Amino acid sequence: TGEEYIAVGDFTAQQVGDLTFKKGEILLAIEKKPDGWWIAKDAKGNEGLVPRTYLEPYS
């Protein structure tokens, strides 16, 4: 299990392996990579890379 984050903006996948999401979606951070791209999972179970700058902790 990971930590929940809320998307603060829309993001469209730029390449294969990225995860597209919309502002307000809750994402589960699976792995926090030091380069600023995290592996996350959305509510539908889709998994991919997301930019850290689009996420804020969800409580």
Score class of each variant (00 low, 15 high):
residue 1 T to E: 13
residue 2 G to A: 13
residue 2 G to N: 12
residue 2 G to M: 13
residue 2 G to T: 12
residue 2 G to R: 13
residue 2 G to K: 12
residue 2 G to E: 11
residue 3 E to F: 10
residue 3 E to S: 11
residue 3 E to K: 09
residue 4 E to Q: 14
residue 4 E to T: 14
residue 4 E to V: 15
residue 4 E to K: 15
residue 4 E to Y: 15
residue 5 Y to C: 05
residue 6 I to L: 08
residue 6 I to P: 00
residue 6 I to R: 09
residue 6 I to E: 04
residue 7 A to C: 09
residue 7 A to F: 02
residue 8 V to D: 02
residue 9 G to T: 14
residue 9 G to R: 15
residue 9 G to C: 15
residue 9 G to L: 15
residue 9 G to W: 15
residue 10 D to N: 10
residue 10 D to C: 07
residue 11 F to T: 02
residue 11 F to H: 07
residue 11 F to Q: 02
residue 11 F to W: 14
residue 12 T to V: 12
residue 12 T to C: 12
residue 12 T to S: 10
residue 13 A to L: 04
residue 13 A to Y: 03
residue 13 A to K: 05
residue 14 Q to G: 10
residue 14 Q to K: 12
residue 14 Q to S: 11
residue 14 Q to T: 13
residue 14 Q to R: 15
residue 15 Q to M: 11
residue 15 Q to H: 13
residue 15 Q to N: 14
residue 15 Q to T: 11
residue 15 Q to F: 10
residue 15 Q to K: 15
residue 18 D to T: 11
residue 19 L to E: 01
residue 19 L to V: 02
residue 19 L to C: 03
residue 19 L to H: 02
residue 20 T to G: 12
residue 20 T to A: 10
residue 20 T to K: 04
residue 20 T to M: 05
residue 20 T to Q: 07
residue 21 F to C: 05
residue 21 F to E: 01
residue 22 K to N: 08
residue 22 K to C: 10
residue 22 K to W: 07
residue 23 K to S: 07
residue 23 K to N: 05
residue 23 K to T: 09
residue 23 K to F: 06
residue 23 K to W: 06
residue 24 G to W: 05
residue 24 G to F: 05
residue 24 G to C: 09
residue 25 E to K: 00
residue 25 E to L: 03
residue 25 E to C: 07
residue 25 E to R: 00
residue 25 E to P: 00
residue 25 E to D: 15
residue 26 I to Q: 04
residue 27 L to A: 00
residue 27 L to W: 00
residue 27 L to E: 01
residue 27 L to V: 05
residue 28 L to D: 03
residue 28 L to S: 07
residue 28 L to R: 10
residue 29 A to R: 04
residue 29 A to S: 06
residue 30 I to Q: 05
residue 30 I to G: 02
residue 30 I to V: 10
residue 31 E to Q: 11
residue 31 E to R: 09
residue 31 E to S: 10
residue 32 K to N: 04
residue 32 K to L: 07
residue 32 K to G: 04
residue 33 K to C: 14
residue 33 K to S: 11
residue 34 P to E: 14
residue 34 P to V: 11
residue 34 P to I: 10
residue 34 P to K: 11
residue 34 P to F: 10
residue 34 P to M: 11
residue 35 D to N: 11
residue 35 D to M: 04
residue 35 D to C: 09
residue 35 D to Q: 04
residue 35 D to L: 04
residue 36 G to L: 05
residue 36 G to I: 04
residue 36 G to N: 06
residue 37 W to L: 06
residue 37 W to C: 08
residue 39 I to C: 09
residue 39 I to W: 14
residue 39 I to S: 05
residue 40 A to N: 01
residue 40 A to K: 00
residue 40 A to Q: 00
residue 41 K to H: 06
residue 41 K to V: 12
residue 41 K to Y: 05
residue 42 D to T: 05
residue 43 A to G: 10
residue 43 A to N: 10
residue 43 A to T: 12
residue 43 A to V: 10
residue 43 A to E: 09
residue 43 A to W: 09
residue 43 A to S: 14
residue 45 G to C: 06
residue 45 G to M: 04
residue 45 G to E: 04
residue 46 N to W: 05
residue 46 N to L: 08
residue 47 E to V: 15
residue 47 E to N: 07
residue 47 E to I: 15
residue 47 E to T: 15
residue 47 E to C: 14
residue 48 G to V: 03
residue 49 L to V: 09
residue 49 L to N: 11
residue 49 L to K: 13
residue 50 V to S: 01
residue 50 V to G: 02
residue 50 V to C: 05
residue 50 V to L: 03
residue 50 V to E: 01
residue 50 V to Q: 01
residue 50 V to H: 01
residue 51 P to W: 08
residue 51 P to H: 14
residue 51 P to L: 10
residue 51 P to N: 13
residue 52 R to K: 13
residue 52 R to V: 13
residue 53 T to R: 13
residue 53 T to E: 15
residue 54 Y to H: 14
residue 54 Y to S: 09
residue 54 Y to I: 09
residue 54 Y to Q: 09
residue 54 Y to K: 12
residue 54 Y to M: 15
residue 54 Y to R: 08
residue 55 L to Y: 01
residue 56 E to P: 02
residue 56 E to Q: 10
residue 56 E to F: 08
residue 56 E to A: 10
residue 56 E to M: 11
residue 57 P to H: 08
residue 57 P to M: 07
residue 58 Y to I: 12
residue 58 Y to Q: 07
residue 58 Y to H: 10
residue 58 Y to T: 09
residue 59 S to M: 12
residue 59 S to P: 14
residue 59 S to K: 12
